[in-house]
């Protein structure tokens, strides 16, 4: 799965778990938390949604890997590669 596609997936999930978040102009290298009004419960929802959709596990201690869109793409790339298309 390409980086851009992963970033789009994350943005789409954010629009579901935090409908008020303004996701049209998100910078890929800036922490999502600093650009959008996301709290720790929102990040938990992102983790749950990724598991529901792609059956991937993100251990608690690796949640910080989801800080920016770039880090999401780098971290989730290998995990999503194993997901059947």
């Amino acid at each position: 799965m390409g980086d851009q596609r992963i970033k789009n997936i994350i943005l789409e999930i954010i629009s579901v778990v935090a409908p008020d978040a303004e996701i049209t102009d998100v910078k890929a290298d800036v922490r999502l938390r600093d650009q959008l009004d996301l709290d720790s419960m929102d990040f938990l929802d992102i983790v749950m949604e990724l598991r529901k959709r792609y059956k991937i596990e993100i251990p608690k201690e690796e949640y910080p890997e989801l800080a920016t869109l770039d880090s999401c793409a780098a971290y989730l790339g290998p995990k999503l590669a194993a997901v059947p298309a």
């Binding site: 749950m48 529901k52 596990e57």
Partner: peptide, 20 residues
């Protein structure tokens, strides 16, 4: 309510691992 969600996430993760 929020703690219920946090723990539900843990439970769901275990169910996922167990089914795998």
């Amino acid at each position: 309510i929020n703690y219920g969600v946090i723990v539900a996430n843990e439970v769901d993760s275990l169910c996922n691992e167990d089914s795998k």
